[in-house]
Nucleic acid binder design. Structure first.
Length: 362
DNA sequence: GTATGCTTTCGGC
DNA sequence: TTACGGCCGAAAGCATAC
């Protein structure tokens, strides 16, 4: 049975929210930035609106670089406000949830959904539903999004990416092969620079090239698991179901140090608010964690981590602080100066009250 | 060989 | 000339047990 899978992506999300709240920004280059606090311009661009993209500024580049690129224009540099965007995101996801059979949020600004049932398997009906979702998001939240409808998750994501902003692309089963074939392989989820290079060596440039390779050929290059994944993805036969995501599996916080340092006290002082924040978020959700990691980023921006797994889950802040201190010591001992440092907790269990409740219900 | 668990790195947005 | 965040989930890598 052919599925109707959808993918929704909020257009240049953070920057669009800023435009929405301040319409005078609409025709300017708008950059939502993460300021690290080290120097005035230290940090990166998180999201750029389309006007800024036309001028060569995109997400991930240093703010100082963007400043140079946009010298002489009236560009708006805006500090990122994640909580604000999360509010908009939650309301949009709720609209989506009301209109689909199953939905799977995969980021703050995107989600997969399945409408096979309520569209009765019809792509015409599916198109109407996608249209309705888009207009509800626009009416209720004043935001545009791009939506794709196709038979699988991978093809739905390609479809939402096909026309943006404010796009709606529907790819029925009979059009699927022609739609995917000409696209470069790196458009496929899970194929980055490294895999794309390796594929290019084997004469594979487009998704169509990849679909024509058989599994044994790919097995030699990438191993069996990856071979099957690549083959199915490129052939439009990926069968990953759309599934509601459960609770978060990790909670982390990373900061940039005022200056590079290997001094444990100096680092712990700056890390303390992040530790408090992580502990607060864990407590709010009633979680117990068993794994604690310290993340260190060196001056060359490479990332190193050290992890400690506890005997038993805890929510105790002094345990968190002690373990962090210990892991940090190990990390700076081996690596020397750090530029940024972070803390992560994971391997969650429900709080005792909740687990006895679920036991009782069972 | 296979399943499992833990640590580290990778890659998307 | 250089410039450089903060999250998340999953894969990869490795060890151990059977």
């Amino acid at each position: 049975m052919t599925r109707l899978v959808g993918h929704l992506d909020l257009d240049y999300f953070y920057a669009q929210v800023e435009e929405l709240e301040n319409p005078s920004l609409r025709n300017l280059p708008v950059l939502v930035c993460v300021y690290s606090g080290r120097t005035g311009n230290s940090g990166v661009v998180s999201t750029a609106n389309y006007r800024a993209r036309e001028l060569g500024v995109r997400s991930g580049i240093p703010i100082a670089f963007a400043k140079k690129r946009l010298a002489g224009t009236e560009a708006a540099f805006i500090r990122m406000d994640r909580e604000k965007y999360a509010g908009y995101s939650e309301r949009v996801m709720e609209i989506l949830r009301e209109n689909v059979d199953v939905m799977e949020q995969t980021g703050i600004d995107e989600a997969f959904f399945d409408i096979t049932k309520r569209a009765g398997g019809s792509f015409e009906a599916g198109t109407e539903m996608a249209s309705l979702i888009k207009s509800q998001v626009l009416q209720r939240e004043r935001l545009t999004c791009s939506v794709g409808i196709a038979p699988t998750k991978i093809s739905a994501k390609l479809a939402s990416d096909f026309k943006k902003p404010d796009g709606l692309t529907v790819v029925g089963p009979s059009e699927l092969a022609n739609f995917m074939e000409p696209m470069p392989v790196e458009k496929l989820y899970g194929i980055g620079d490294k895999t794309a290079k390796a594929l290019q060596g084997a004469g594979v440039v487009t998704i169509g090239d990849l679909a024509r390779k058989d599994i044994p050929q790919l097995d030699d290059l990438f191993g069996q698991k990856m071979a099957v994944y690549l083959h199915n993805s490129a052939s439009g036969e990926d069968d990953e179901p759309v599934q509601e995501r459960g609770k978060a599996t990790q909670i982390s916080r990373i900061i940039t140090l005022k200056r590079n340092s290997r001094n444990q006290d100096e680092i712990m002082t700056q890390l303390a608010p992040a530790l408090d924040d992580v502990h607060k978020r864990v407590a709010e959700k009633g979680l117990f964690f068993r794994s604690i990691s310290v993340i260190g980023i060196l001056s060359d921006l490479s990332i190193r981590t050290r992890t400690k797994t506890l005997e038993a889950p805890t929510s105790d802040s002094s345990t968190l602080n002690r373990a962090t201190s210990e892991l940090l010591g190990a990390l700076v001992g081996e690596l020397g100066d750090l530029r940024r440092v972070g803390i992560k907790v994971a391997d969650f269990e429900e709080s005792k009250e909740q687990s006895s409740l679920s036991e009782f219900l069972r």
